[in-house]
């Protein structure tokens, strides 16, 4: 799980163009939206594309996104349970 979390942080930094940030700067349990990383709605769409592209996960239920994208840890847990690649 820890390896997946580190990989996911790197992918988030690249996908969202956080050019001044390293994986160590991202708190695994901090909120992704609002406080914490402060992502916006376009970033949310990029994360959905990232999960599809990198892990073969298509989010069929938009309501589930709120729980999945709570933090890097919740994303990683969802990926580990649902990945197809």
């Amino acid at each position: 799980m820890e390896q997946l979390i580190e990989q996911l942080k790197t992918q988030i930094i690249e996908a969202l163009n956080f050019e001044d940030m390293t994986p160590a700067d991202i708190d695994t349990d901090a909120p992704l939206f609002g406080e914490g990383l402060g992502l916006d709605s376009i970033d949310a769409l990029e994360l959905i594309m990232l999960m599809d592209r990198e892990y073969g996960i298509k989010l069929a239920d938009p309501k589930a996104g709120k729980a999945i994208f709570q933090s890097v840890r919740t994303m990683a847990e969802y990926i580990q349970a649902n990945r197809t690649k």
Partner: peptide, 8 residues
Amino acid sequence: ENYYPSPA
């Protein structure tokens, strides 16, 4: 084949 439209 890699159809992943970028919202950003």
